[in-house]
């Protein structure tokens, strides 16, 4: 594209702050992480245990009724190894994984920590269906965020 010096570009930054209410269900889940517990929500109609936990079953359209502890073992359902640096996102390479923790009916996203290598080498060592395990940070480092644990290969 030819640069034209008659055209101006106006630089603008725009900041908007949000305070997202976590609500009772998300708050209880995140507090559970502080105790090293991962819990899903049970649907009284279809019996599914959903993660991320939610107050209602999207399918049966009724309120979920109880907490069910899941994991720490589970199955890798999908993964990717990020090779490219994106602005404001972490330094590559890193692995994003969806794993279905034992006792739950849906998969939860988290980072998967493994020995680093080239993207191809890391891909060689991962497969859909592989067993994984949720590993918590030491108690003193937990922040009641989803990143209080991560996955490792079992």
């Amino acid at each position: 594209m030819v640069q034209r010096d008659d055209l101006l570009v106006l630089g603008v930054d725009w900041h908007v702050h949000y305070d997202h209410s976590a609500g009772e269900i998300v708050s209880a889940f995140l507090k559970g992480l502080g105790n090293g517990v991962i819990q899903g929500r049970h649907c009284p109609l279809c019996g599914a245990v959903w993660l991320p936990p939610r107050a209602y079953c999207e399918r049966c359209f009724v309120a979920t009724d109880q907490w069910v502890s899941v994991g720490p073992g589970g199955v890798l359902e999908a993964f990717t190894i990020v090779g490219q640096k994106f602005d404001n996102l972490p330094e590559p390479p890193y692995v994003i994984a969806f794993a279905r923790l034992d006792g739950s009916d849906s998969s939860l996203a988290n980072f998967l920590t493994m020995t680093l290598g080239s993207v191809e080498e890391m891909a060689e060592r991962l497969a859909v269906g592989q067993r994984i395990r949720a590993e918590f940070k030491p108690e003193s480092q937990r922040q009641l965020r989803i990143t209080d644990f991560h996955y490792v290969l079992a």
């Binding site: 997202h20 209410s21 009772e24 269900i25 939610r54």
Partner: peptide
Amino acid sequence: TCQDKRLEEMIF
């Protein structure tokens, strides 16, 4: 102000 529910729960 609804602080005890996330937006999605209010909608449900």
